[in-house]
Design a protein around this nucleic acid. Structure first.
Lengths: 102, 102
DNA sequence: CGGCATCCTTCTGGATACTG
DNA sequence: CAGTATCCAGAAGGATGCCG
């Protein structure tokens, strides 16, 4: 099932949120993403970024400054998830209204 | 974050697959879904169906036959996920090609 | 048929401390 | 800054058996 193939890659508590952040910012640093996503720990961010990189959804670029600077960005491939995220986000907004009662 | 609101409801190993099945079949019985989704156990199917019902994404209808017949179907609300599923599915198909190398 | 109960193992993920 | 290492609790989820 194709949907399951997609979810294999996207499963994990934070992956969708991470991709979402990268959709809006294009290039983003580790600590910035850490602040963007409320509640995530550095351990989890590190782990999920690594998995996304393995699956070719994002790239990791290191700049040899002092201290080092690392940028993450979506690959061309990962960018194709933008429309999915957009729809999901719209649905999520509506869902929150429904659950919260306003 | 709206995306996270959506994922709260959709998290779980099989929920997206279940919704996907109901997108294609409209009305579907417990044991049919069990067969549709490869690898799922009855315990998991039961649990995730219950959660989806609580969140108003699906409805559960019991027919008092002998033995009982139970149908699940998407609510009007759950149906709004169809476009998300469609995009996700398309992406998943492409992803499989990419990973499998063809 | 459509589940629920139980057992048990694995995975998830938070807190904290440490490093180049 | 951008992680890694360790510890540990709790959740997820598979296997099996039982029930109306």
């Amino acid at each position: 099932m194709a949907v399951h193939d997609a979810m294999d890659v996207l499963s994990g508590k934070w992956k969708i949120s991470i991709i979402s952040v990268l959709c809006y910012h294009n290039k983003r640093r580790f600590s910035d993403i850490l602040n963007d996503i409320k509640g995530i720990s550095n351990k989890m961010l590190s782990k999920e970024l690594k998995e996304l990189e393995i699956n070719k959804l994002i790239t990791r670029t290191v700049f040899d400054t002092q201290p080092v600077t690392v940028y993450y960005e979506l690959t061309e491939y990962g960018l194709k998830l933008q429309s999915v995220i957009k729809h999901l986000s719209a649905w999520g907004t509506e869902h929150r209204k429904k659950i919260m009662g306003r």
